[in-house]
Design a binder for these strands. Structure first.
Lengths: 259, 259
DNA sequence: TTATATTGTGTCATATTGACAAAATAACAA
DNA sequence: TTGTTATTTTGTCAATATGACACAATATAA
């Protein structure tokens, strides 16, 4: 699947019914960290004052996973990012398409009410964790803005996108118990404090520094480097990096096996 | 949604495109326990020698969750069963519809190749845990047999249904760490040994009797009753029942919070 | 040189887990 | 009636994990 060759907007407006899998969309909850806050990347529609998750439709010749990956890539320019399916949202009432109708009208589509995009859709939620600084948020063709929003202060979202984000965060919190995170979230080398801050931000609570280090090191997915120039007026911390081999093994097999 | 009034077969053959949500199906992995084995309920097609999961399509006016529930109910006659979404299977190649084509032909559908059911489908996997003895497996209109199969000896399944079952089992094993199970799986009163056997069967390994009881009781979801007539020539075990209030609270909030 | 902030490391009481053993008891056989 | 057998209830104990906290080390700035 060659992502670059796709002209998603044109396909959606005029070729949709044949090119895309009907009834199904993907939405990506892209998490990033900044200033001690957990952020999520949102788009503001040109013809709608509300914010929406980066999402899209699935080409007939495209795996759902690939579609999610394409959406993530289009919006962040990042590749190789860990993306995880967490839930399908399938209620009848979740899609009321007022804004889509207006949007089709203005785009010059005849008889917008019978356009395929006005039909009921179910959507598959994926979440990703990305390095905030590496992302240059770019709106797509039908959006006016693309920006980070604090995950705890979500207002004016379309449809059920607030619930999708909340479910995504809930899933992420659960997955933290048996899945390593951080690989595409931090620079190659980082102090443990930074990783701890990520955990604290996701969980929404403070963790004991000493106990956190003991636990995270016990997973055996980190390699300790030499000290850094801390920059701060205090003892310089060690730098760590993820041992990718062990990291992916842990992703595969899980961190804890309680039973 | 009135389940009884649906004529699924007729709808599928002749009304499909309008009545159902296109491209999406649900499949239920229905687990039961018998003779120390974990079983899954499968259907054998009338026009296909292969076995399939109980599954179906989603009516336009029906939530996905309701569709899964309807499928479960139709096949087992059971209501109020815990059903849990675990994964969406969305690869392009997952649906090759040779058997569907033959099936449409024999059902008298003209031009089967362009029938909506021949198109690509993604499917949402749900799993359920049911009391084996309470289920009277009934084939649907387009199946010749409905029977339990050992989850470790799956042969001749259509499409990716073997992978779906395996993923469902894997999910169930994971969920065991933070989710109570057993409520619709055991009689109202039961000895702890029976619950332990269920855990052992799901996990595929033996557990220490004493430690299992300590752990399961620590969840605080069981009420101890008076002793039973054991029937065996040995000390009679206590009977337990699930405290529904606490059980559902645990379902909601989770059993363990590691972080 | 000293103050300050933050890290590396260690301690310790408590809780949890895994492995196992002793006592209790229902049914059966002699 | 009594002993045997199987399985349960209950308990023990060492090993490990966790939570709370203490103290020494050290990079920068005053």
């Amino acid at each position: 699947m060659d992502v670059q060759k796709k002209n998603v907007l044109g396909d959606m407006l005029f070729g949709g019914a044949e090119l895309f899998l009907p009834s199904v969309s993907v939405d990506c909850v892209i998490f990033g960290f900044h200033a001690g806050e957990l952020k999520v990347l949102l788009l503001k529609g040109k013809h709608d004052p509300k914010w929406a998750l980066p999402g899209g439709f699935i080409y007939q010749d495209e795996n759902v996973e690939e579609a999610a990956s394409r959406v993530l890539q289009e919006r962040t320019q990042l590749t190789g990012i860990f993306l995880r399916q967490f839930h399908l949202f399938g209620d009848v009432k979740r899609t009321e398409q007022k804004h889509a109708r207006r949007w089709l009208e203005e785009a010059g589509v005849e008889d917008p009410d019978s356009h395929w995009i006005m039909q009921r859709f179910v959507t598959i939620g994926y979440y990703a964790l990305v390095e905030f600084e590496k992302v240059n948020p770019v709106p797509d063709e039908y959006s006016s803005e693309c920006d980070w929003h604090n995950v705890l202060e979500l207002r004016n979202l379309i449809l059920d996108h607030k619930q999708i984000i909340e479910k995504g965060l809930e899933s992420l919190r659960l997955h933290l118990n048996f899945q390593p995170i951080g690989l595409n979230l931090l620079p190659k080398e980082f102090p443990l404090k930074d990783l701890q801050l990520i955990y604290e931000t996701i969980l929404g609570k403070k963790l004991d520094r000493s106990n956190f280090q003991r636990k995270i090191l016990s997973y055996g997915i980190l390699d300790r480097k030499e000290k850094q120039f801390s920059g701060g007026s205090h003892r310089a911390p060690y730098l760590y990096s993820f041992n990718k081999k062990k990291y992916f093994k842990a992703l595969q097999e899980g961190l804890n096996k309680e039973w």
